[in-house]
């Protein structure tokens, strides 16, 4: 029995299962026409090619897909692309400035070796950028608590704390 179908699929994807999303990603206007099921994570990676945002669990439990929506950190795997219509999205690709210089946290992550395999790193950075903005770098314990939504299986936590502390102005 051969169940392979070689012909192209019939265009059964009806319009009501498609949604147009107008959003701003890293400062640039973006339009996505996507399956309504598409998560923000999938739209960023598959529709916009912004693969810096990683899928680690797709269940909101690892933080690897953390991005900013209207300046607040969220996990993009548990948000529909349709839900960011009209909102501002920032991904790790948006952390560098116009001249291509690294964000101070990116530099601190490199200097403190705050990653190993690097897979959780974009999510850690996006979380840490917000953490500083939220004013939650008052102590190592506070940094640890408010970075605990980002798993690092390589175990770079101590170095992440050091990098965040330094970027917060607390010294290395």
């Amino acid at each position: 029995m051969k169940t392979t179908r070689s012909t192209a699929p019939a265009p059964t994807a009806q319009d009501e299962y498609t949604v147009d999303v107008f959003t701003v990603v890293n400062g640039a206007p973006v339009q996505w026409r996507v399956d309504t099921r598409t998560t923000l994570l999938e739209a960023l990676r598959d529709s916009s090619g912004l693969t810096g945002t990683k899928r680690g669990c797709d269940q909101g439990a690892c933080g690897a897909c953390t991005v900013h929506v209207d300046g607040a950190r969220v996990v993009s795997c548990l948000m529909l692309a349709a839900q960011v219509d009209g909102r501002q999205v920032t991904t790790v690709e948006g952390l560098i400035d116009e001249e291509g210089r690294l964000h101070p946290l990116q530099e601190a992550f490199v200097r403190h070796d705050a990653f190993q395999c690097g897979f959780c790193t974009p999510g850690q950075l996006m979380s840490a950028v917000c953490l500083l903005r939220e004013g939650r770098a008052g102590s190592d314990a506070e940094i640890r608590e408010y970075m605990s939504g980002n798993l690092c299986r390589c175990g770079a936590y101590d170095n992440i704390v050091a990098a965040v502390r330094e970027a917060a102005g607390g010294g290395a």
Binding site: G60, G63, T66, V69, A72, R73, V74, V75, L78, M79, S127, C130, L131, E134, Y146, S148, G149, N150
Partner: peptide, 9 residues
């Protein structure tokens, strides 16, 4: 109750 990411959502 949840991480900051989830609390924001």
């Amino acid at each position: 109750g949840a991480t900051v990411q989830l609390r924001n959502m």
